[in-house]
Design a protein around this nucleic acid. Structure first.
Length: 561
RNA sequence: GCGCCCGUAGCUCAAUGGACAGAGCAGUGGGUUUCUAACCCAUGGGUUGGGGGUUCGACUCCCUCCGGGCGCGCCA
């Protein structure tokens, strides 16, 4: 029996063979046979629309082509290693060929899952390659918002998916520890510190308000009273450094509580400290992509599809934000990463062309940098929408959401929609421990399996010892579960390829549904020892995949609920 | 003004250019002496915002209009 991992590659090879043997067709070598997952079971376990493509290439009726192709494939199947895996091949109008798997093959899937264990579902998409996922990267000027929470959930899951695909993965947080915003942070803290000591101070116009700044100011005044009294640039610098340190600590703690760990916090300031920034700008000049105009240095980003060129060095000699960003991304490549994934908020989407242009100007393939926009969330409690206003400083933080609905529900809900689509997050629903809440639906399946396994352990004698007869798994609900298990590796690979973890939540819901249906109709532990043993293996396999999927999402797989 | 995203069932959302546009929730009606009822089963619900085009085939691609969101700095 062919192993489930090899099914698709052998099948496409077989299809290619059949295409070559079709008579009366001109050159079809350009066609690459592709398999799809049919939507309805009546269309088989795997399908291809290849006849429709042949028909359009050869100007022949698709139905005739489908029949010819199906019979050629059936012919080739004889004597092939797929013989035992594919029950039958069917041509269906207008021009599909559908493949139905054998019961024996589906039983083999269950065995494979158990043999592979936690490694089941891995693929070699990124074997030998290094990927860097940069996400969250919020300015250290306050606690993380819900938007950052979604970025954290998506980024962490994405990193897990890439690791499952064989990439060596780094999670990185770009720490913006210098520049206008950070200067403002320092000023705000220094003012609060002076206030704490009863000194006169004028709060900057666009300064950071909020309790955490006031608190930091008080702390700073306590630690460095002399410096605060003295004021001036030295105090400014110290207050800024103090603020970055304190607020980075806050963010780190919040992410820790959310279960997201970064391999590195990359400080923006380190780029200029090493002189790397200047070397990068010089490189761009040498390559001819930096020119002087109106007293400023511009990046010729229009050469790579941007709307207009961008200022990199201002006429007063100061650098713009993108200067550091260009150097940072050059650094990423120099560190040996082949794939750079950046997750950004929607307010940065206009920034994509210029950063991609920068990468091209540096001589790298622009495909190597993949930027994904993570859309915002609307928070609701039932029918009531929770207003968000950054300007007023009134916003719900990630920590508040986590405290209200719990870490698992928060992480799962953030992944419940495609990441570039707006997400409606109903706190009331996420908090509910009921059938309406999809995260509990999945976790419940996992806990239920543990419960059955424990029950069986207590009964001890009911399962047959030694070899398990997988042929006893033949009920429709059992085979449907095996079909679901088979889909997991493909689903994970597709999600990794698309850099979009959302598909895993859909998959897990379907798998949990399959389990609950099976559970409702069949007793696992029965008076039939052989059947009991086989069903125990089946639910163990389901549990392995449920756990693997939940792990990818960073959601716990509880033994008890 | 220029650019990007979105518009699908009452609500929230799916659907690598493919088969009859599918799920969950809400609605209605059922199910447990037995391993977790946080579960299962049945059922109604659609001119995919409007119009045109490309295609054997369009929710998907192109044009246009309507409606909603966002971005357009020598800010980050």
């Amino acid at each position: 029996m062919i192993s489930p991992q090899d099914l698709e590659s052998h099948l496409t090879a077989l299809m290619g063979e059949a295409v070559r043997r079709l008579e009366g067709f001109p050159d079809l070598s350009k066609l690459t046979p592709a398999l799809e997952m049919p939507r309805g079971r009546q269309h088989g376990d795997l399908a291809t629309a290849l006849p429709l493509q042949i028909a359009s290439a050869a100007h022949r009726p698709p139905w005739e082509t489908a029949q010819a192709l199906a019979s050629k494939i059936t012919e080739n199947l004889k004597g092939s290693i797929l013989a035992g895996a594919i029950e039958r091949v069917e041509a269906k109008p207008p021009g599909f060929v559908n493949f139905f798997l054998t019961t024996a093959f589906l039983q083999e899937v269950v065995k494979t899952v158990l043999r592979e264990g936690p490694g089941y579902g891995a693929n070699r998409l990124g074997a030998g390659r290094k990927a860097l996922v940069e996400f969250v990267s919020a300015n250290p000027t306050g606690p993380l918002s819900v938007a950052h929470g979604r970025q954290a959930a998506v980024g962490d899951a994405l990193a897990n998916l890439l690791a499952m695909s064989g990439y060596q993965v780094w999670r990185e947080y770009y720490l913006n520890d210098e520049g206008t915003q950070i200067n403002l942070l320092g000023e705000s803290i220094l003012v609060r510190a002076r206030e704490a000591l009863g000194l006169a101070a004028e709060f900057p116009e666009k300064g950071y308000k909020g309790d955490y700044i006031t608190e930091s100011g008080r702390q700073f005044a306590k630690e460095r009273p002399a410096l605060v009294r003295q004021g001036g640039p030295k105090a400014q610098d110290a207050a800024r450094a103090f603020g970055v340190r304190v607020l980075t600590g806050v963010i780190r703690k919040e992410l820790d509580a959310f279960g997201v760990r970064f391999d590195r916090w990359f400080a923006q300031s380190s780029l200029s400290r090493w002189g790397f920034l200047n070397r990068t700008l010089n490189l761009l000049k040498r390559r001819g992509y930096l020119y002087l105009s109106e007293g400023a240095w511009w990046l010729k980003s229009t050469a790579f599809g941007d709307d207009k060129d961008r200022v990199v060095i201002r006429s007063d000699g100061r650098l713009t934000y993108i200067a550091a960003d260009i150097a940072y991304h050059r650094r990423k490549f120099k560190r040996g990463f082949d794939l750079l994934v950046n997750l950004w908020g929607p307010d940065h989407h206009g920034y994509i062309p210029r950063l991609k242009a920068s990468v091209s100007a540096l001589g790298h393939a622009s495909d190597a940098l993949q930027i994904r926009i993570i859309q915002l969330c609307t928070l609701k409690r039932g029918a009531e929408t929770i207003p968000m206003s950054t300007r007023e400083g009134v916003f719900i933080t990630l920590t508040q959401v986590m405290e209200e609905v719990g870490r698992d529900a928060a992480r799962f809900f953030f992944l419940l929609r495609k990441s570039d689509a707006h997400l409606e997050f109903d706190l009331q629903l996420a908090k509910q421990q009921s059938l309406e809440n999809p995260v509990y639906y999945i976790q419940y399946a996992h806990a239920r399996i543990t419960s059955v396994l424990e029950y069986q352990r207590k009964q001890a004698a009911k399962a047959a010892g030694g070899r398990v007869n997988y042929e006893r798994l033949a009920a429709p609900e059992e085979l449907d579960l095996a079909r679901r298990l088979r889909e997991f590796p493909q689903t994970a690979a597709a999600c990794a390829r698309a850099l979009e973890p959302f598909g895993i939540t859909v998959y897990l819901q379907a798998l949990a549904e399959g389990f609950h249906r099976f559970y409702d109709r069949h007793r696992v532990v029965s008076d039939d020892p052989e059947l009991t043993a086989a069903r125990l293996k089946l639910i163990e396999a389901v549990q392995v995949v449920l756990r693997a999927g939940l792990n990818l999402l960073g959601v716990s797989a509880p033994e008890k609920m």
